[in-house]
Structures are given as C-alpha cells and as structure tokens.
Amino acid sequence: MTAAAEPTSVQPRDPVLLRPLRLIGRTVLGGLREIGRITAFSARVLIACVTPVIYLREVLRQCLKVGYFSLPVVGLTAVFIGAALALNIHTGGSRFNAEQFVPNIVVLGITRELGPVLAGLMLAGRVSAGIAAEIGAMRVTEQIDALLTLSAQPARYLYAPRVIAGILTLPLLVLVADIIGVLGGYLVAVGALDFNGSLYLKNSWAFVTGNDIWSGVIKAAVFGGIISLMGCYQGDRSQGGAGGVGRAATLAVVGAAVLILASNYILTSLFVRIGL
C-alpha cells in the first residue's frame, strides 16, 4: 500500500465530501428564508386586514369572485363526495351489520372533514391560482409599481380585500357544501340503498352537533386565509414575464394545498384536545 492509498483521517476541508452537506445546508437555509418571507408578508397583510383603511368595494368585488363564482365547483364536489361516502360507508358497514349508520357518518364526515378540506382544495386550484396569476401579471406589467408611486399600499388595496374575502366566503361555501354533501348521500341512500328518506334526514339532523358545524367553519376560515395569502404572496414575488406568472400560479396552488392539509391536521388535533 502506498502512502497515497493509506486510510486517512476525515478531512473536513475536502470539497467533495462537503458538497452534500453544503447542498443540505443551502436547501435548509433557502427553506427558512422562504418561511421568513411568507411570515413577514402574511403579518403585513393580516395587519392591513384589521386596520383602516379597508376598501369595502374591493372586498365585495373579491367576495363575488372568490365566493359566489366558486359555488358551482364546490357544490358539484360536495354532491359527488356525499354520494360516494354514502356508498363506501354502506359497503364497509355491511361487514359489521352497521349499514344504518350511513346518515350519521356521512354528516359527520362532511361537516368536520371533507366539506372544509375538499372545498379548500378546490378553491386552492381555482382561487389561489387566479389570484397569483392576476397579481403576477400586475407585477410584471408594472401595475404594482404604479400603485406604489400613487402612494397606495398593495397590502391594503390589493391583498387585504382578497384575504378578507377568502376568510369570509369559504365558511359560507362550506356551509353550502355541507348541505349539498348530505343531500348527495341522501340521494344515493334513498335511491340506491333503499333507505327511508325522512328517517335518513331525521338521523342526519339528530346526530350532527353545533361543534361539528363550528369545527368545519373555523377550518374553512383558516383555509380561506391560506388560499388568498398564498395567491397574493406568489403573485407578488413573480418575475420574468408570462413564464414567471405561470410559475407563480403553480407555486400558489401547491403551497396552498400543502398548507391546507397540514393546518387541517393541526386544527383537528387542537379541536380534539379542547373537545370541539
């Protein structure tokens, strides 16, 4: 064995060995930087949401865009999910002779979990991408610079109305989704599974509690805020023309969807702990 081939002690200065560490370090630092940016942006926008001046006309306009025009997609999602849920619970329940619990489990599943999460995910696709694209286009066409030169704060004029609209309208959409989802389950249960219609509705109504509804509504408000904030944040950071705007829309949808699922788990854990 020559001297060169002898085993040597760990050489921390060897760039080849350090390369993976450097990559990990760079990725972690990049991730932390992004979290810092999102947190600072969110804090600025949320402060603008609760302090004057609030542009009510803009808030109403955004409520229409975010809420009213999302009704069809949320309603369709809810009816199919309610119907599929009823079928699945009936099939699974039949193994334990528990088919009669279809209405109870459908209403619980829809109000506590599937209503807010699926409405949130649908809106992440529809609204978050739309907001990111709109604001991204404003960024690359200098409209945001124009706002600044007119002494208007984008956080107040552009972002706060969208976030307020998200927080206000998603709970309302979820309430509608709850009703339509239960209706979807009802249609399948009565039409295909031979349930008694009035008994189905009576069981659904008797089983659901205010806490079930509230937990879904609170989740929806949080998801609504996340959806709008991610759209605004990615739009605000977009650069480089049409490609940059497209990338912003994609990042907004992915970011909003991941944050919705993560915050859903955190909120559910919290609700379980406090008995909501």
Partner: peptide
C-alpha cells in the same frame, strides 16, 4: 416624495380591473 410626483410608465401600467 411620491405625493408630490407623478409617473408615466413605459406601457402605461393602467389597472386592468
């Protein structure tokens, strides 16, 4: 400064909405 200045951007930068 911005309250006492005006700016005309290259492509107008008019607000679409």
């Amino acid at each position: 400064l911005r309250r006492r200045t005006g700016m005309l951007f290259q492509d107008g930068a008019l607000f679409d909405s």
